[in-house]
């Protein structure tokens, strides 16, 4: 336990020493919200397309989904595959502490950064643009946690099946953009075509984004989305656990 605590402290320090990672993990969602709200014309005006709501209101849960995707597909995945490639995991396996503890510490640090980053984005949106707080906080937390878990499982699986750090980041990018599309980054809220939505419902980030949008608007996430996120977490997590190589 002492080792896990020490590992978590060290990995947090390393996370913050990597300026790009720290920026994307912690500051990026808030910066994005501020840029969208202040630089894009009409982003803070009520719109007929959205049933009278402002784009920024609809966009906030999508920004949270984007934050999940960025931390898992860029920072977490990047560190895990670099650690394996450089033999950091292998060296750890010469000690009584399992490299599994390092994985756990990495998950703690990245999820922590994600929580802080998402919190900052929410506070920024509420303070700067008067966005209403989520109506169903419990539902939002459930959707956020399940969505993060599913995307962490995707990151672990990609790290497990790719032979090198380059391949990992390549495959990560290949997954990152469609995931953002499924989350509605380019077609937020009601603008997303139905056909796209029916596919997006079955992707980890699409389900997370829909569930968070539902919760923000006051309802509970739909069972379909919860099942998709939970199921993908279990399936990808199990596959990753079976195929992860430590060296």
């Amino acid at each position: 336990m002492n080792a896990l605590r020490k590992l978590t402290v060290i990995e947090s320090k390393l996370f913050l020493r990597e300026p790009i990672g720290a920026f994307f993990g912690v500051a990026f969602p808030a910066v994005l919200v501020l840029v969208l709200g202040s630089a894009i014309p009409g982003f803070t005006d009520p719109s007929e397309d959205n049933g009278g709501r402002r784009p920024i209101d609809i966009y906030l849960p999508i920004v949270l989904a984007l934050a999940i995707a960025t931390v898992t597909m860029v920072t977490l995945l990047g560190v895990l595959s670099a650690y394996r490639e450089k033999g950091v995991l292998r060296r750890l396996s010469t000690t009584p502490v399992s490299p599994m503890a390092l994985l756990a510490a990495q998950l703690i640090v990245n999820v922590g950064a994600l929580l802080i980053g998402s919190g900052l984005a929410c506070v920024g949106a509420v303070v700067a643009f008067d966005v209403a707080a989520p109506e169903n906080v419990g539902g939002l937390v459930v959707a956020f946690v399940l969505g993060s878990a599913a995307m962490c499982a995707v990151a672990l699986l990609i790290a497990a099946v790719t032979p090198s750090a380059r391949a990992s980041s390549g495959l990560g990018t290949l997954v990152y953009f469609p995931m953002m599309f499924a989350a509605g980054v380019w077609t937020p809220g009601p603008i997303m075509p139905d056909a796209v939505r029916r596919v997006a419902d079955f992707t980890p980030l699409g389900a997370a984004s829909q569930a968070m949008q539902d919760a923000w608007a006051g309802s509970w996430p739909r069972p379909l989305h919860l099942v998709v996120m939970g199921g993908l977490t279990a399936a990808f997590g199990a596959l990753a656990a079976r195929s992860f190589r430590w060296e």
Binding site: L14, R17, K86, G87, V88, R91, T94, T95, P96
Partner: peptide, 16 residues
């Protein structure tokens, strides 16, 4: 693992 110390021929630590 508790009784043996191993220096591997190839393995690194995080750069920072």
């Amino acid at each position: 693992r508790r009784h043996i110390g191993i220096q591997l021929q190839e393995s690194q630590l995080p750069d920072r």
